[in-house]
Design a protein around this nucleic acid. Structure first.
Length: 217
DNA sequence: TGCCAGGCCGGGT
DNA sequence: ACCCGGCATGGC
């Protein structure tokens, strides 16, 4: 898949996802962006920032009713309030509230622990590991799935782990590459690989297609 | 105006 | 092990 990465980077350049933010802010963003556009998440994050609530202790002590109100723009606000609460409870119980301690845990062990937190599934766990902890796990999302399927590298029934294996076995375990690659996939996916868009237009990945869609009659 | 977004859970088969 | 309905807001 490295050729895909090169093609995307050449086309879009560095995406600098989540730059200059604290690890906890990245985690909050990873939870709030579940099936939600970033413009909505951004409104919720700003509400939290304005109220100086982007810390573990603040989220731990805030009343759920107030947290719900503040993150409301990001959608699923009752669910996500529970998830944020569950995560900080996990962090305080298992790691005395220290992200530094948490991220010292071996990747596979920590991944299992994160998946046990209610509201954190595979993509969110991997986002936290990669973008907040710099652990080399490849983040799979709906776009990565769709792109691989359209390019004939997998089938529609492939699981999250199947897709992840395709990327991880063909790339060195480099968190900087994984970071950029996932962001680039989201970028190209938004433009050229949305559900209702059958053709790929000027997608920079077109040259990797097994056949040219235009020429089929 | 409807459809969609950087998913996940719980109950049912 | 999969399948499906529910969860919710703001943007285009």
């Amino acid at each position: 898949m490295h050729a895909y990465y090169e093609a995307l980077f050449a086309a879009f350049g560095p995406q600098h996802w989540w730059p200059g933010l604290t690890r906890f802010e990245v985690i909050v963003g990873a939870i709030l962006t579940q099936n939600t556009s970033w413009s909505n998440v951004s409104l919720a994050i700003e509400n939290l920032r304005r109220n100086r609530l982007l810390t573990v202790s603040a989220i731990a002590s805030i009343r759920s009713s107030r947290l719900q109100r503040l993150i409301r723009p990001s959608g699923y606000f009752r669910q996500k309030t529970k998830t944020l609460k569950a995560f900080v409870r996990f962090l305080q119980t298992e790691y005395a509230g220290s992200l530094t301690q948490m991220f010292k845990t071996p990747t596979l062990t920590l991944r299992r622990q994160l998946l046990a937190v209610r509201g954190i599934g595979p993509e969110t766990a991997d986002c936290i590991l990669l973008y907040a902890g710099k652990h080399p796990v490849f983040v799979v999302d709906a776009y990565a799935r769709r792109i691989l399927e359209r390019h004939g590298h997998t089938t529609a029934t492939a699981s999250y782990e199947d897709i992840r294996a395709i990327f991880e076995r063909s790339l060195a375990p480099d968190s900087a590459i994984y970071n950029e690659f996932h962001a680039l996939i989201v970028q190209v996916g938004k433009q050229f690989c949305r559900p209702g868009v059958p053709r790929c237009g000027q997608c920079p990945l077109n040259r990797f297609l097994p056949q040219i869609p235009e020429s089929s009659s």
